[in-house]
Nucleic acid binder design. Structure first.
Lengths: 207, 207
DNA sequence: ACCTGAACACCGTTCAAGT
DNA sequence: ACCTGAACACCGTTCAAGT
């Protein structure tokens, strides 16, 4: 622990302001949404002056970009972990992935919206855009493996992954926006609706 | 035409400021997004002072709510018109609806995002939320009619409509966010990808 | 009844100055 | 090298005053 950290309450140098801003910002973004995301508030939460963030991020948008990137990384990690712990059948893996995607959305509704706000895809060298591709690869690989095992119908796994992602993302958005109640209400209802949707799509892939 | 309208350039009373604000606001929202939506700019575009909008809308949020409601109404109108002009087969109707949904998204990306920003479903008496239900009813009715004709598998048409909507909305979001390229690139590519997706889901509904 | 202009609080961003 | 405080432009909202 550095000298800076030990006298932290009054330390002139924060020590790890960049991460503190990311954490405080993620909290504001996830819970309150972009509309109420203001840089001065985030700086206040991190215990620094309103000008301090500019030492670490070009502007407000750059901070949000970085938070969005973290969001994709967290999502990728959660999906991968669920696949790891799930059974061996491909349909089961896909259901587990879809449910986890929807749960992530329920826990971070505003963050998910911001992840698909167009900012990540402004240009393809964007770190958030690259992070989003890692998420895509996760279910594409599940589909590809499933095809090799004969559990999923044929077709370009990349395209099938796109269809699956569309369904999962639409489910997540409509559920957090209260548009598919009462079919997906409560933890049980959501799980049932997601399973039903994914099963239907997988059945269609076999045809 | 009223006296107010005839001397319009210098008229103290605008005449139809409410609609002028809605139109100017819809343009800003659709093209620039919420982040760049500011009330003073909208007022400027409508040719009035920055305080004038408060005579017609409680605040900025109320104006956006009203624009979002218009968005759902326009979408409902477009979907209904496409169904009207399409062939008789239910799968064909659903493909036409999905494609129109995606085209609407491409033409009004920011507006669509705002339509699913959580604001419409804050409470269920919200006019925007009610307008969104009219959109829902359109494909639910197509599905229901298709079931009676034996063209679509059995199941609660409301739930099936929810699944279909999820797929359509996910396709729209991922396409405007450049996440399913190169599978849905260009007008042709988008049409092919949407048809493929919807066909797959419909096939699954038969099982 | 509808609109304007001044006023206030607050945010994003910059920059010279502090440690 | 990192952070602060003052400063500036600009936005949301209110309100007394104008037509």
């Amino acid at each position: 622990m550095s000298a800076d950290r030990q006298q932290n309450r009054k330390a002139y140098h924060h020590g790890d302001l960049k991460n503190a801003l990311l954490q405080a910002g993620k909290e504001v973004l996830s819970l309150e949404g972009v509309n109420r995301f203001d840089l001065r508030k985030v700086a206040r939460k991190a215990g620094v002056s309103h000008a301090a963030p500019y030492r670490h991020f070009a502007d407000k948008e750059a901070l949000i970009d970085a938070i969005v990137k973290l969001g994709f990384e967290e999502l990728a990690g959660r999906l991968a972990a669920k696949i790891e712990k799930s059974g061996h059948s491909t349909p089961e893996k896909l259901k587990v992935v879809a449910l986890e995607y929807v749960l992530f959305a329920g826990q971070n509704p505003w963050l998910l919206r911001e992840m698909f706000s167009g900012r990540s895809s402004r240009n393809r060298n964007n770190e958030a855009y690259i992070a989003s591709k890692a998420v895509y690869r996760i279910y594409r690989d599940v589909i590809h493996t499933g095809q090799e095992a004969g559990e999923i119908g044929s077709g370009d796994p990349n395209a099938l992954a796109g269809v699956l992602w569309s369904l999962m993302h639409g489910l997540a958005m409509l559920i957090i926006d209260d548009q598919v109640t009462p079919y997906a209400e409560g933890k049980r209802g959501v799980e049932r609706f997601v399973n039903y949707s994914v099963s239907t799509l997988i059945d269609g892939m076999k045809g």
